[in-house]
């Protein structure tokens, strides 16, 4: 999985590409978010529009990122979840936990509203 980082004002957008199914991918994502927190960047958007497959390990990685940000008084927003990823959010009820947006732009804008 690839992670492309973009900083927009005080918001970091992490564009993921590939699969989020455990192993080093999940660890890398969580480490990336932890390094943003260490750099005082506490508003993070994770964009999933180019993630093809995700399973419970990927969901766990997102939960880990969210918890780390919350513990640092930060916030995580999710954008671009495909239908099959949204389906996973629905069946695990994480749709009620994650703050989700159709696009990264909307997720970034929501930090300002």
């Amino acid at each position: 999985m690839q992670i492309k980082e973009e900083i927009r004002d005080d918001v970091a957008v992490l564009y993921l590409k590939g699969n989020l199914m455990g192993g080093t991918d999940s660890t890398e994502l969580h480490e990336k978010v932890k390094s943003l927190i260490a750099d005082k960047v506490k508003k993070v958007v994770i964009d999933l529009s180019k993630v093809k497959w995700m399973n419970s390990s990927g969901l766990g990685a997102l939960m880990g990122c969210m918890t780390s940000l919350k513990n640092a008084d930060g916030e995580l927003k999710i954008s671009g979840a495909t239908e099959k990823i949204r389906n996973l959010f629905m069946i695990t009820k994480l749709i009620t936990i994650f703050d989700t947006y159709e696009t990264a732009e909307r997720a970034v804008a929501s930090f300002k509203s």
């Binding site: 399973n55 419970s56 766990g60 939960m63 996973l88 695990t92 009820k93 936990i97």
Partner: peptide, 22 residues
Amino acid sequence: SPLEPNNILKENGRGIFILHSL
């Protein structure tokens, strides 16, 4: 159950539940 309020924020414990759901 990963849907229980005490478990929903956990990082693990959803795999078997997802198998049954899908």
